[in-house]
């Protein structure tokens, strides 16, 4: 009997399958939600949704003239979704660096582009899943609100508006993802994202827009909120200029960060 197993100088890889993409997506989805931070982000978002419904119902109960349609509900309930959830998109990338898990992630799947695509897919699934929840909640609230207010429920949420809502939400999450990849730092990426997505539009652009003519011409080209506003309003018709503005703003805040960021992730050394 020999004591040594036969020596294997080469490894037979012919019978090993690569990691299927769907498995990578499942793993990235799990990694997004399995930490305490992820739990609280979801929990607080849930509370905000319920809170928003409660406040609107309260107003309906108090004021007889108020009528809230399905479209209104969807507009109201997508706000809580855009507040905290983009942090998931940011952390999905940055935690690989800040928590240094990239060492394991990228040695288990050395083709980093696949990991990135799996992460983006998980983020997109999160956007879709949360919008489904919000719409379902909105539908219930629409019935309850009509009962309370003594009016007929209006089901006026068009498919095109819903699609636009999903699109705009995706735009913001992809921007968060891109900024995360460019900076590879959780606090820096969160700060930049909220300045660009919330602070500038409300505090700076809003004021400029109201005061100056040139700002009204200029801001929709560089701000996602102004650029995408016509898309979300079913009463607005979307002009060619609107489309061009959206394309420019998306290029600045989504395409450029995604391109620069993925190059950075593909070439940098996780330490």
């Amino acid at each position: 009997m020999t004591t040594h197993a036969p020596e294997r100088r080469t490894i037979d890889i012919s019978r090993t399958e690569g990691i299927p993409f769907s498995r990578l997506v499942k793993v990235e989805w799990r990694k997004m939600l399995d930490t305490r931070g992820g739990f609280w982000l979801l929990a607080i978002t849930g509370v905000l949704l319920v809170f928003a419904v409660a406040i609107v119902l309260l107003v309906i109960g108090l004021d007889e003239d108020v009528r809230v349609s399905a479209l209104d509900w969807s507009t109201i309930l997508t706000i809580p979704l855009s507040l905290l959830l983009p942090v998931f998109a940011i952390q999905s990338v940055t935690s690989e660096w800040s928590q240094r898990t990239g060492l394991v992630t990228f040695s288990l799947e050395p083709h980093r582009i696949r990991v990135l695509l799996a992460k983006v897919s998980a983020v997109i699934l999160l956007v879709l899943a949360t919008i489904v929840v919000a719409i379902a909640l909105g539908a219930v609230a629409n019935v309850v609100g009509a009962q309370m207010g003594g009016y007929d429920a209006r089901w006026n949420l068009e498919v095109s508006t819903l699609a636009a809502t999903v699109f705009v939400q995706l735009v913001y999450f992809l921007m968060a993802f891109g900024i995360g990849m460019v900076l590879l730092s959780t606090p820096a990426a969160i700060a930049i994202f909220y300045v660009v997505a919330l602070l500038l539009p409300f505090m700076v652009y809003g004021t400029l827009y109201a005061l100056f003519d040139w700002a009204q011409d200029f801001i929709p080209w560089i701000d996602l909120q102004f650029a995408t506003a016509p898309l979300l309003d079913p009463n607005d018709s979307v002009s060619a200029t609107n489309i061009a503005q959206m394309a420019v703003a998306c290029t600045i805040w989504v395409v450029v960060p995604l391109v620069l960021g993925s190059r950075r992730v593909l070439s940098s050394e996780p330490k």
Partner: peptide
């Protein structure tokens, strides 16, 4: 080369090559 292959050419490399570079490089919250 590991077993005659570049690491990136090994499908599902965790099944062939076990790696420990830094035991602390894991998510502190997991």
């Amino acid at each position: 080369t590991i077993g005659g292959h570049l690491y990136r050419d090994i499908p599902n490399p965790g099944r062939h090559v076990g790696v420990l570079l830094d035991a602390g490089a894991q998510h502190a919250g997991r």
